[in-house]
Design a protein around this nucleic acid. Structure first.
Length: 308
DNA sequence: AAACAAACCAACCGCCTAAGC
DNA sequence: TGCTTAGGCGGTTGGTTTGTT
């Protein structure tokens, strides 16, 4: 069936770039009256524009709280991290970067960040390692990456749950139910199973089954997992961005290739690593009631470990 | 200086969802 | 309950700018 176009059948509507005069009309009208119903705004404001066009122009360009200018390395890093969790949900990502619009972030991703990930041999959609970089076969992680992929998928589910939960928080009676639903969801996932297995293993191998002190941290041993690659990617970004994309790619790739040969031995500890992160993920989730989880990456043990 | 290519980004298009009737 | 519609979102396009030969 499809939705009826809001206004494209109307004759005489202007399309294409906005003129300063149109911008001024829109700004003055909204400042005076608020946008109210977007459908009636063009007529009331004296604009020969479709309502969608007006809304888009306002939200993506004219809004006073829009932050113009280049993205900082921190912002770029955050976008990469959030994309790894949320996927192409630009609006959700934008909500974590005040003053930035979904369109802006989408453009940033499509023109810069995606290419950098590809250069690093990372599939920008799945954030999984791909098999080649610049035609060269790259070392692929074995089981560890699989675990991390599962972990990341779980994190994505969690983030989506958080997004849903945010709206449910307004309905007190649903909070308890939704909390348990999310936890149950994670618990029943493969990650939850890994977590339970981890506990079993730790009971025999360690005195304190769910103690952080019990797990060794191997953040420095980049075995090619996506979280670690994200760090590698973030390096040149944080170091100041005067390099060209190509130069960034080369330096980043060399960083990947410079991983000491013995680093893959980390695989013996991968279950610990993965499960430790999972544990923290669950603990963080239990203790988190709003989107600050996504806003502050330090809450993610994954990131805090990586970024340390 | 001109031609071409690549990069950038504003804007459009169409689908989805939720609210209202 | 089902239909209509406004608003919102993500994908894509195409015009403009910048860089390279």
């Amino acid at each position: 069936m499809g939705r009826t176009p809001c206004c494209d059948k109307k004759m005489g509507l202007i399309k294409g770039p906005w003129t300063p005069e149109e911008d001024e009309k829109l700004i003055q009208y909204i400042n005076k009256n608020g946008h109210g119903s977007w459908r009636h705004l063009p007529k009331n404001a004296g604009l020969l524009r479709c309502s969608k066009s007006c809304r888009l122009r306002w939200t993506n360009y004219l809004r006073p709280d829009i932050k113009r200018g280049p993205f900082s390395p921190e912002d770029e890093k955050l976008v990469i991290q959030l994309h790894g969790i949320l996927g192409n949900r630009w609006a959700a990502i934008a909500s974590q970067l005040p003053g930035r619009t979904d369109n802006e972030i989408k453009n940033l991703w499509n023109t810069h960040l995606k290419k950098r990930l590809i250069c690093l041999g990372i599939d920008p959609q799945t954030h999984e390692p791909s098999s080649t970089v610049n035609g060269l076969l790259k070392r692929l992680p074995a089981n560890p990456s699989t675990r991390h992929m599962v972990q990341w998928e779980s994190a994505r589910l969690e983030a989506e749950a958080c997004l849903s939960k945010e709206s449910l928080l307004l309905v007190p009676s649903s909070i308890e139910k939704s909390n348990s639903d999310y936890i149950l969801r994670i618990w029943n996932s493969e990650v939850g199973e890994a977590f339970r297995n981890f506990n079993k293993n730790q009971e025999t191998a360690c005195q304190s089954p769910v103690s952080h002190a019990c797990s060794s941290t191997k953040c420095g041993s980049a075995s090619g997992t996506i979280t670690e690659r994200s760090l590698i990617l973030a390096g040149p970004l944080a170091a100041g961005d005067n390099q060209t994309d190509d130069a960034e790619c080369k330096s980043s790739i060399s960083a990947v290739e410079d991983v000491p040969p013995g680093s893959d031995s980390a695989s013996s500890n991968d279950l610990e690593d993965s499960s430790e992160s999972l544990l923290q993920l669950l603990l963080d989730f239990l203790g988190t009631n709003d989107m600050s989880l996504l806003g502050n990456t330090d809450n993610y043990s994954l990131y805090s470990a990586i970024l340390s």
